[in-house]
Amino acid sequence: MLLREEIEQSFGAGPAHRPIEELVAKGRRRVRRRRAAGLGAALATVAVLGATYAVTAPGSEGSGAPPIATDPTSTPSGPTWEDDTPIRYVDGELQIRAGVVVHEHIENPFGYDPPKLSDALDLTYEGKRTWTLAESTRKGFGYTSSVPSNGWASFADWVADQVGTAVPGDDGWPDTLRLTNNGEVVASQGSEILQRTDDPRLGDSFAPPGTPTGAAVVLAAEDGVGYFVVWRVVDGELDVITTPPRDVIGATFQQLLTYARGQYANGEGLR
């Protein structure tokens, strides 16, 4: 008998498996944690850049179901509305800016426990329809939005996808880098930085001047694959953007840097 067959037949299939639903639930929780962490980092960056939160592409106007809430012409109470956001949290409550029309509202899509808050809204603000996901955590206010129907069948599908997966381009990429207590960016445990440059000059759209940034090709311990990554350290948080391996095959490090600069110069980015 061949060794392969001998090994194959040398033991059985074992006891019953755990329910698959249990695995799915654990997977969802893990994704949600990663998603929340990614969202927080991305939004902190927006705040530092001082950019507006408005979406960049025009949305459809007046489509879909009738609005469930129309605002108000009056501005909600609380501090002056300084940011260009259609919603905000004040004292643990969601506030909707004057003039915003809410078509659909899903409360607490992340399933947070107080005092953390989250809301998803299909809304029209300043003539633009957007799907919006916001959260309030100890890290502050987080906010992301998308043009409606941009690849998703419905608002509910979009929310489910945002909650169930990490930020675009970051869902499930292996850990490659970590931030030390000294503020240094180094390879995560078991990973290896093959090439690296700090301050790769990716432009102000990537990070404002003075922000620690870098780019590297890292061999990830998790799957043994080399990834081209760029990073920025904002408010003490490391934000790593990973590109798919197939996008880097055959390219030199300089070519990758040139590609990354172009992506951030044209506003598309690498996510």
Binding site: F11, G14, P15, L23, G27, R28, R30, G172
Partner: peptide, 28 residues
């Protein structure tokens, strides 16, 4: 199980791998 020789540990290893797999599912 062939690697570790213990069904309980094999279950743990499998669960760890499959939860990570769920997270990375879209690209994988």
């Amino acid at each position: 199980y062939a690697v570790c020789g213990d069904w309980h540990q094999a279950d743990d290893l499998l669960q760890t791998a499959l939860v990570k797999l769920y997270v990375a599912w879209p690209r994988l």
